[in-house]
Write a protein that binds this DNA or RNA. Structure first.
Length: 573
RNA sequence: GCGGGCAUGGUCUAGUGGUUAUGACAGCAGGUUCCCAACCUGCUAACCCGGGUUCAACUCCCGGUGUCCGCACCA
């Protein structure tokens, strides 16, 4: 049995391997650290967690699902900041072992430390930079962090550099123009994407917690920062654990409702508050223990390069408190950066004023018959520059700066000064983005961790995986008490009926004693078991067994099937 | 990435320079039982990979990989 090792986490891991839930990848070739497989049972659980997640967000109505490539050309990740952030050179102190980013050490000694290459960094380190920790100066050679998997698109020589995406978020930003059109050019709206992300971790540990290839599920919610959506939070009356920014005005731990958290100023942004509580809803809905969920606000010093405000949702389990969801206000950082790097003008939204702003503008209207002959071919450029002119000079002539930086002299005869009344109906702006990013594998780990229950049964160790039906690998097990006298036949008919119901899956097990089969289905978390016995042959009734307390009731096959279909099976008890 | 421990059927493990390589549980077939891992019979199934030492290596040595513990890292 699996109760021989003395740590619960080892026994749980053993169950996961033995029952085909989560296993190390490529094991027959020795395995690769940081890569896992979901086996036949685990893949069902993963699929259902993903489906729950997609349904959770798309049910809002203003959030849609998209799907984009995992291979991402380099310029996208330059604009997002990943290439700069990820290409840092690391060095270690040979005396005390502390590790530093090389460009941080070089600050103050070089105008642009980020531009240094490996050799320059190494030379500079030998030149007497001291370790901030121990003040010695014996450095290891600098080496690149290389946290993204790089590849090439196209032939080796002519190909373009690309990386496996480190997050799915960039796909949503790339699709912003299409989303903006889809939503009739009105904020707020959101897009979700689930899929694989890749980080070439230096030293993955802790099984499913730090992976090199992992399942992500991210939502980008685009809002007008001047009118952030503020849903009514009063309908959530659960108390939520919060750990506020240790450097902020509210430093400390709290247990309060989300509306209290917002009104007290601990949560700073109404839309972020809403995502915190909706994240809480999701996690509880897939079976995470509410008592082991907490939200921790990032201190300004640990915020990601793009984030203006950030909360981690941490879940407690065998590996301590683990960040399972990051909720960040990314502001306009990504869209603005992509606009600058790509030159696209489609990454904005239109803010319609309630009333048009009437502006009286002094303008200089060009006098073509004078300017044409004066500037000849350049006349068009000059007139464009005149149109862009914001500060109208008081006196003539004046020097007008053109788009290319040169300037020309504008004389009184070339223009007519007049006042113009302009109705401005709105303005273009770059939307802000609130991003909840879910680590699905970490969440699945905690679902399994929280569900795994070790009990005793008649003096023997017994384990039950208490999964919510919404994430259980099968909804119901169908067990003929014996596979003879027609019981097996009836069981197979029930099995087929269950499997024909949308969204429902049954598992048939006719092997070995009934007690052993109950144990098997308890171990992988199947919430219900239907047993076909001798009485079934007489009156068409079966027993229904509830996993979590092993209670049993008797009901007709028709009744059980219809209650399974309607989701009301628990009303039998 | 550094230091240390570990690596034997599906799982947990015993053990040895020459063995038919333990045992338990799980699994399979049959019997038995007739609602909670019962019992009987039989069966399937393992020494992480690559070098070296040796007449002979699962065992000793070196390297790799994986895993665990500490340190570091984790945008």
């Amino acid at each position: 049995m699996s109760f021989m090792t003395d740590r619960r986490v080892d026994r749980l891991t053993s169950v996961l391997r033995r029952r085909g839930i989560v296993l190390p990848s490529f094991e027959i070739y020795g395995g690769i650290s940081g890569l896992i497989d979901y086996g036949p049972v685990g893949a069902c659980i993963r699929r259902r967690v993903m489906d729950n997640w997609v349904d959770h967000w798309t049910s809002h109505g203003d959030i849609v699902e998209i799907d984009s490539p995992t291979i991402t050309p380099e310029p996208v990740l330059v604009a997002s900041g990943h290439v700069g952030e990820f290409s840092d050179l690391m060095v270690e102190c040979g005396v005390c072992g502390s590790a530093f980013k090389a460009n941080h050490l070089a600050e103050g000694r070089h105008e642009n430390p980020d531009s240094l290459n490996v050799d320059e960094i190494n030379a500079m380190l030998k030149d007497g930079i001291e370790c901030p920790t121990c003040s010695e100066s014996k450095w290891s050679d600098a080496r690149s962090m290389d946290l993204m998997f790089s590849t090439r698109i196209g032939s080796k020589k002519g190909g373009r550099v690309a990386y496996m995406r480190p997050e799915t978020a960039q796909g949503m930003f790339m699709l912003y123009p299409a989303l903006f059109r889809h939503f009739k050019q009105k904020l707020p709206f959101g897009a979700i994407q689930t899929g694989k992300g890749y980080r070439n971790e230096i030293s993955p540990r802790q099984g499913m917690i730090r992976l090199r290839e992992f399942n992500m599920a991210e939502l980008e919610y685009f809002i007008d920062p001047d009118e952030p959506p503020s849903p009514d939070l009063s309908v959530w009356d659960e108390k939520i654990s919060l750990i506020a920014d240790p450097e902020g005005a509210h430093a400390g731990e709290y247990s309060m409702t989300i509306s209290e958290a917002l009104s007290s100023g601990i949560v700073r942004h109404p839309t972020v508050a809403w995502f915190l509580v909706r994240t809480w809803d999701f996690l509880v809905g897939v079976g995470i223990d509410p008592a082991r969920i907490r939200f921790r606000q990032h201190a300004s010093t640990e915020m990601a390069h793009y984030a203006d405000d950030c909360w981690d949702c941490e879940v407690g389990g065998e590996h301590g408190w683990v960040e399972c969801v990051g909720i960040a206000n990314r502001t306009c950082h990504d869209l603005l950066s992509h606009e600058q790097h790509s030159g696209s003008n489609q990454l904005r939204a239109w803010r319609q004023y309630a009333k048009p702003h009437i502006e009286i503008r002094d303008i200089l209207s060009p006098n073509g018959s004078v300017m044409g002959p004066a500037f000849k071919g350049a006349a068009g450029v000059v007139m464009d520059a005149l149109k862009e002119l914001v500060e109208i000079p008081d006196s003539m002539p004046f020097a007008l700066t053109l788009a290319d930086g040169s300037s020309v002299e504008i004389t009184d005869e070339m223009v007519t000064r007049r006042s113009e009344e302009v109705a401005v109906h709105g303005e273009w702006f770059t939307p802000h983005v609130i991003e909840p990013a879910f680590g699905i594998d970490r969440i699945i780990w905690h679902i399994l961790d929280h569900g795994y229950t070790e009990t005793e049964k008649e003096g023997e160790n017994y384990s039950i995986m208490r999964l919510n039906q919404s994430v259980a690998p099968f909804d119901v097990a169908i067990l003929p008490l014996f596979d003879k006298d027609g019981m097996g036949h009836i069981a197979r008919q029930i099995w087929a009926s269950v499997n024909s119901m949308p969204g429902l899956r049954g598992e048939l097990d006719a092997n070995k004693s009934i007690g052993r089969r109950y144990a098997r289905v308890d171990e992988i978390g199947i919430p219900w078991a239907i047993t076909v016995d001798h009485t079934t042959l007489e009156d068409g009734s079966v027993t229904v067994r509830r996993r979590d307390d092993q209670e049993q009731v008797r009901a007709s096959i028709e009744d059980v099937l219809s209650k399974l279909a309607s989701g009301g099976i628990s009303t039998l008890f």
